[in-house]
């Protein structure tokens, strides 16, 4: 019985991680086509750094991811507070609209953005990309921040008000410090989502502003080059780190429990 369990778990792990292991292994494989192990090398890493078009696309991706995550976090946090604390017309519609946005298939969102930008006559590029990325990150921010907000003692805000704090003071001294873990976590989540998006990006950006996933995608069409393996490995490391931080930040519920 115990042996069976170990075999079963091993199989699942192999199933999940074998492809990734192969990819990471190949990034250090001196044999170009990766069918067999040709010895350890770092030359593909060097080659990647020399590949200007790939590095430019990487720079674009980072810039968009940072800006989109930041904008989504600012707008999303304020939206969450509005939904949590105030009554306003269309409040229900606003929150369910966010869910629809999150549940929609990427391809649908991609086409919607494209149609919208075409109708407005906006030329595709950095701005359209940033706008689209901010939009699809928004619901994830709202959900993460709202979850944390709901964990608070609802009387905290009244207590602050009772102790003569103005709305602004309540925001800066109570709400913001308490929400910081959720805000940071949702920023990292948005950053990762933006960084590895292919479908929406390929619809809403133009040829002069290429982002990394699209560049890789077009490179792979003519065969997997070892540089792509290297790049994927690096991205994997970045994503793993941000997700680990995200988990750590959201897991730390000590703040909520103390009341």
């Amino acid at each position: 019985m115990k042996a069976f369990r170990i075999i079963f778990i091993s199989l699942i792990l192999v199933f999940l991680y074998a492809p990734i292991a192969v990819l990471v292994g190949n990034s250090f494989n001196s044999s170009k086509y990766g069918q067999k192990w040709g010895g350890f090398t770092l030359k593909w890493y060097e080659k990647l750094l020399e590949n200007d078009s790939l590095m430019t696309a990487f720079g674009h991706s980072l810039l968009v991811a940072v800006l989109a995550a930041t904008t989504a976090v600012v707008v999303g946090t304020l939206m969450t507070l509005a939904i949590y604390r105030y009554r306003f017309p269309l409040k229900k519609t606003t929150s369910s609209a966010l869910f629809i946005l999150m549940m929609s298939p990427d391809i649908v969102l991609a086409i919607t953005f494209l149609v919208l930008f075409m109708a407005l006559g906006v030329s595709l590029g950095f701005w359209t990309l940033l706008l689209a990325h901010t939009t699809f990150c928004l619901p994830f921010v709202v959900i993460t921040v709202y979850a944390q907000l709901k964990g608070f003692n609802p009387y905290l805000f009244e207590a602050a008000k009772d102790l003569c704090a103005s709305e602004w003071q309540i925001f800066t001294r109570i709400v913001l410090p308490l929400l910081l873990p959720a805000i940071a976590a949702s920023w990292l989540l948005s950053f990762t989502l933006s960084l590895d998006d292919v479908i929406i990006s390929s619809f809403v950006t133009g040829p002069e502003y290429e982002v990394l996933p699209i560049r890789v995608f077009s490179m792979v069409k003519v065969g997997v080059s070892p540089e792509v393996n290297v790049l994927a490995t690096l991205l994997l490391v970045v994503s793993t780190i941000s997700i680990a931080i995200f988990v750590l930040l959201t897991k730390n519920k000590q703040l909520n429990k103390s009341n």
Partner: peptide, 20 residues
Amino acid sequence: IPAEQRPVNTVFQSYALFPH
């Protein structure tokens, strides 16, 4: 007169201490 300007203070049932 809003709550923050009244000469009144409250001890909440759930204490509502600021956790941070």
